[in-house]
Amino acid sequence: MTTIDNGVNVQALLDAREALKGAPEAAQFTWRASSKWQNGVHSTTTIQNFFGLGQEQSHKSETVFTADHPEVFAAEDNGITPIEYLLVGLAACLTAGVASVAQNRGIQLRSVESTVEGNHDIRGILGADSDVRNGFNDIKVTFTIDADASPQDIEALVAQSQKRSAVFDALTNPTNVTVEVA
């Protein structure tokens, strides 16, 4: 049997699963972002530190995300729209899931591409129609996967990646959100 390598250390993940079964406290993570208004509807958000495995952790380097709105919103378009960051998160999370599940199931991937479309009726955020919600009405993700596997196995990969996806869950299920003024 040739070795499957999608670059995912599945063994480490399986070991973590076993270890954390008996240590739920260590499994509590807090992800953090700090944001700063620039001008107009342009802001920058910085991410570097998080908490997990019982202690402060840090990414190798800091990442700065710029958010703005496009010119059709009468803005300067210094960066992508905040709601587009949700698409980034969803695509990245499902893709990571596909790779991990494939590794675990012994499926060699050659390419995994996806497009994500979120349909958004902006009358909601503009307050033009109170029956229209602010967020996405629906989101569609389309994967194109080239792998050593049957179409059915590929479908199963994609289904399982949704089942274990943090962002898919965060978008499809309600979450309590508290916003305060410090």
Binding site: D138, E155, A159, Q160, Q162, K163, F168, D169, T172, N173
Partner: peptide, 10 residues
């Protein structure tokens, strides 16, 4: 949940 389609697929 908005994940109905996936529980069908699974």
């Amino acid at each position: 949940s908005g994940g109905l389609r996936n529980v069908f697929s699974l």
